[in-house]
């Protein structure tokens, strides 16, 4: 799968060049949010490090499988509060747009009190 990196990077670069200038972070500190996955699986992965969050989304499938043990799966609908936000920090492997990395503290559910990093698109106001 590594051989895909170059052509995919070329496609992404071409697409990204067409995008408008980067915007500011979508969320601000102290904002309360609900975690809800934007993909087909509404569960949200909570990562112990923003770099691991970014690496997971840029990784090949095998790499992602290896990394998954370092994440917690948060049930969709869990409430949280924003601690920090890094604008356009995450570049999905095949996605068209950059995503924010948001640090949150879980307020409800079995993981209440835990902190970690989630994708900006998974944290809804």
């Amino acid at each position: 799968m590594r051989e895909l990196a170059r052509p995919v990077a070329a496609v992404l670069l071409a697409l990204l060049c067409a995008l408008p200038a980067a915007a500011a972070c979508q969320l601000r500190a102290h904002e309360r949010v609900v975690l809800f996955g934007a993909g087909d699986d509404p569960g949200v992965l909570l990562w112990d490090s923003r770099f691991r969050l970014r690496a997971y989304h840029a990784a090949s499938f095998d790499e992602a499988q290896d990394m998954i043990a370092r994440a917690l799966l948060v049930t969709a609908g869990t409430r949280a509060i924003v601690i920090a936000c890094l604008p356009q920090f995450v570049q999905p492997r095949y996605g068209l747009t950059l995503d924010d990395a948001v640090e949150v503290r879980i307020l409800t559910g079995p993981l209440h009190g835990r902190s970690g990093w989630v994708l900006g698109s998974d944290a809804r106001r």
Partner: peptide, 28 residues
């Protein structure tokens, strides 16, 4: 199903990404 759900999440996310990539090329 907790661990399995997490693993499943990784599968689904990855598939969604590859599908997004294919879709982007088709759109272009």
């Amino acid at each position: 199903l907790v661990e399995l759900d997490k693993k499943n999440k990784a599968f689904v996310d990855y598939q969604a990404q590859t599908a997004d990539g294919v879709r982007a090329i088709l759109v272009v």
